[in-house]
């Protein structure tokens, strides 16, 4: 046990041979990953490769069928999303997990509401802090009282990201953070990710679809296809061409099987 702790102390998060089946569908067949403190790991891969499923196992949303998670060197079996959050794991899900009928500031503090000493919701402070956080990033919204339903796709995404970042996560998971973003907004978010990284104590795992962008931002990249890892290495030692070649080769190999 102590040997394991020492060996992996540098890893903020490590997942070992994670398997996840949904009935007959095997979404993950033995996936391992690790991310160091202060490191950005980019995950690329086909649609349906199991990327989101892997994220949801790390956030405690899904229980793995087999495999083990280690957080800062210690084996953990996540019992719930709250458990993962207590360990400093935050996620921006692909579906954003926003409640349309609630105003922006309530979404920003969803399940982490600020309360007065009597246990009442502290609307005023949440409103102010939400406005400050969004202004800090440079996201324009008419008012934090606005219901999320009325916002554009990019604005919604920015709010979900701001929520995760301002929770002071130690391990930040981003599932396609730039998917609905315009060029200016994507720039803001990349900026925000870089600023977080500069803090030095945060580890970021981001699922992406743009290969060039990923190689630019990430320290390491990982390729996932049909529930397996088909490549993992330092971003500066590989190229878009090499990654695409692996994707094509693995795709043909999987089809031939």
């Amino acid at each position: 046990m102590s040997a394991t702790v020492n060996e992996t102390a540098a890893d903020a998060l490590r997942a070992e041979t994670i398997v996840k089946s949904f009935g007959a569908v095997t979404a993950l067949s033995g996936v391992s990953l690790h991310v160091k403190r202060g490191e950005v790991l980019g995950i690329l891969g086909d649609n349906g490769a199991g990327k989101s499923t892997l994220m949801k196992i790390i956030t405690g949303y899904h229980k793995p069928t087999a495999g083990q998670l280690y957080v800062r060197g210690e084996a953990v079996d996540l019992a719930s999303v709250d458990h993962a959050r207590a360990l400093g794991i935050e996620c921006v899900y692909q579906d954003l997990a926003l409640v349309n009928t609630l105003p922006i500031y309530h979404n920003m503090f969803l399940n982490r509401e600020l309360r007065t000493p009597f246990g009442m919701l502290d609307h005023r402070t949440m409103r102010r802090r939400a406005a400050e956080a969004l202004e800090d990033i440079g996201v324009n919204v008419p008012s934090v009282d606005e219901e999320v339903e009325m916002l554009s796709g990019g604005q919604r995404q920015a709010i979900a990201i701001a929520r995760a970042v301002y929770s002071e996560a130690k391990i930040l998971l981003l599932d396609e953070p730039l998917a609905a973003m315009g060029a200016r907004e994507a720039g803001l978010i990349i900026d925000l990710i870089q600023r977080q990284r500069a803090r030095g104590d945060i580890s970021i795992i981001m699922i992406m679809h743009n290969y060039a962008q990923t190689l630019e931002i990430a320290d390491r990249v990982m390729l996932m296809q049909h529930g397996e890892v088909t490549f993992s290495g330092a971003a500066r030692d590989t190229s878009v061409e090499e990654l695409l070649e692996i994707v094509r080769r693995e795709y043909r190999a999987a089809r031939a099987r």
């Binding site: 949303y61 709250d82 926003l98 349309n100 009928t101 609630l102 969803l110």
Partner: peptide, 16 residues
């Protein structure tokens, strides 16, 4: 409200 407005999202946010 969160559970009725977005059941999956509320669960992802850790609401029981």
């Amino acid at each position: 409200i969160a559970v009725g407005g977005n059941l999956t999202g509320a669960t992802e946010a850790g609401i029981n």
